[in-house]
Simulated scan of single mutants.
Amino acid sequence: MHLPHPSEIQSICILRLSALGDVCNLVPAVRFIQQQYPHIHITWVIGQAESNLLEGLEGVEFVVYAKKQGWQGLRSLRRQLAGRHFDILLHMQAALRASAVSLAIPARVRLGFDRDRAKDGQWMFSNCRIEPHSRSHVLEGFLDFVNRLGIDTKGPLCWNIPIPQSARESALKINGNHRPYMIVSPCSTQRTRNYRNWPAEKYAEVIRYAFQKWGLYTILTGGSSEVELEYAEMLQLLTPEPAIVNTIGKTDLKTLLALIDDAVTVIAPDSGPVHMATALETPAIGLYASSNPQRTGPYRSQQWVVNRYPDAVERYLGKEVSQVGWGERVRHPNVMDMISVAQVEERLNELLKVHELK
């Protein structure tokens, strides 16, 4: 299908419901559209938590889809979009649920991923596709949509995710005199057979090391799931006062952004906080063994990643990285044990020699 020139486009609807890290990676694509064609009205159909994270992003109208409400949420979305029509839908989530949601978005041009990246049959829900781009990062995949529209994405990446003053004040109350500090967000989102969490005992060793060698405090962050609360309790038992401040289950996403913005670094597995750090230009030490950091790692902190993914592919899949799918995960319960404390401490030392303590 022929795509109109960007100068002829009046309205774009972006469909990307989740997750926190992915919506962070999508923001630069939005900024390129806004920078070069500010007349285009951008509507973004998004999940509730993700909307909370990006709230206030100038020039973007957020329409929240209540994922947990199922068909009722879909009917609500239809009501919100009733009577509207978009020039182009950017279907930027290759998942069956997102494709079902796309049917509620009225648009003549429905741009989706190329056939290789159009997972869960997404290609059936689009009438136009982006160009193939093998072995690309998730962020680059979003930029491919903008490129397909004929918009240049060769300039510097820009995020400018708003952080309200109230969130900065909350962060200041949390960190208090605990400066300089690093963020440790020990857990990723729980999914079936998705083993991305590093053992709490190993985190504790790194936290003690950072405090004793560098005088670096740790602020623990995370949600209120049972696993995260267990990590918080264990890490408090294994680390001396006042080395850590526990905020797991106690902060909202804007306050988390404020904490990350003022941190020396973020240490976390493949999860939202490493991508939030990227957006805020805070270096992130990503812990990767079950997933490929070249695809899902912190985009601007690849040099700080502890990458055991190639070794995990060899040990648990009996293959080389070049022999497995680009997005293939290593689903073994012991895969994250391949990352040693010494490797993380080494990255921390290297990073602190480059970045001054705040």
Rank of each mutant, 00 (worst) to 15 (best):
L352T: 09
Q303S: 12
G141N: 08
I260D: 02
R193W: 12
E169D: 15
L81E: 12
Y288L: 02
T247D: 03
K202Y: 02
Q36E: 10
G121A: 08
L157G: 02
R117K: 11
Q323Y: 06
E345T: 09
F211I: 10
Q122T: 01
Q323G: 05
H275V: 00
A312W: 12
V138I: 13
G112Y: 01
G59L: 07
M92S: 08
S224E: 09
R84T: 15
M234C: 13
Q343F: 02
D262G: 07
Q212D: 12
L357Y: 06
L57I: 02
I174V: 13
R110L: 00
Q34H: 13
L351F: 08
Q69R: 15
I244T: 11
L317S: 05
E320A: 15
A104L: 10
M276I: 08
L348N: 01
L57H: 07
A94R: 07
P162D: 09
S51W: 13
L89R: 04
W159R: 01
A104F: 04
V206A: 09
S134L: 15
R179P: 00
H2W: 10
L74T: 11
G121N: 04
T239L: 01
K353T: 14
R79L: 15
A342Q: 15
W159E: 00
R16S: 03
V206R: 03
L172V: 13
L15T: 10
C128P: 02
L317Y: 01
N160A: 01
Q69I: 07
Q34I: 09
R331N: 15
L352G: 03
G150L: 09
W198K: 08
G47Y: 00
V27A: 06
H137P: 03
A268M: 01
N246F: 10
E226P: 06
D22W: 05
L149C: 00
Q34A: 01
S188H: 01
N197R: 13
F145W: 06
P38N: 07
A312N: 06
H178S: 12
R331P: 00
Y181S: 05
N175I: 15
N147V: 14
C187M: 12
D152L: 06
C187A: 08
Q236L: 12
R308K: 12
V206N: 06
R75H: 14
E228V: 02
A66I: 12
R300V: 13
Q69N: 14
A167Y: 06
K254L: 10
L229F: 00
A243N: 04
V138R: 10
T192Y: 14
R78H: 13
G83A: 05
G141D: 11
V63M: 08
W44I: 13
H5E: 14
E228A: 09
Q294W: 13
V305S: 02
A66Y: 12
H41Y: 12
G83H: 05
Y209G: 03
L280F: 05
L172G: 11
G47D: 05
L238A: 09
V60T: 05
H5L: 13
G215F: 07
F125P: 04
A98S: 15
T153A: 09
A19V: 00
A312E: 03
D252Q: 09
L74R: 13
Q48K: 14
V306G: 01
E226M: 11
G286W: 10
V138N: 04
